[in-house]
Amino acid sequence: MTEWPVGVRFGGLGGQGLITLGAVLAEAGALAGLRVAASQHYGSRARGGATYSDVILSAEEIDYPHIDHPDILVVLAQQAYDLYAPTLDAKGIILADSFFVKPPAGHKVLQVPGTRTAIEEAGNQVSANFVMLGALVGFAGLVGEKDAIAAVHHLVKQRFLEVNLKAFALGMKLGKSEDRCR
């Protein structure tokens, strides 16, 4: 059983599709009957610099909708890892795209081959974010697979739908079998 509320931060570079991930996770949460709040870090940094988008999933009404200390950090770039890993809750977990993020020795990080899977198996590097989302859902639960897929259908543009659904499914598999991650 998940202990609500859970704060998830998607960290990466502007253009990696972080806001979309936030929107999809929030909608999937709402479909599961949870209260949700999603917010994002705006700014010129949203064009290539480190940035994030946050989602709170809660069983009860959310008073303050921003996250001070995320419970889960999904990180797609080294700069974002360096900036946001220190904000993590003491009991928090990190999922990192192993293609771009090299955590310092001793850091407990679930390394997910997000970008590699996107390139080699999904067939398009831009779907790396959805591999990571799949890995999150596969690993941590939080929302149901069906609800997540419904949210992807609702929020992803038609021409990217197929590749992102494939990426999400591949990510789910990775998340469920930790041994496939490093």
């Binding site: 929030a26 949700v36 709040a37 994002q40 705006y42 959310i62």
Partner: peptide, 10 residues
């Protein structure tokens, strides 16, 4: 304000 304007909720 910006925080409410850009917040996503039900």
């Amino acid at each position: 304000d910006e925080s409410v304007g850009h917040l996503r909720e039900s």
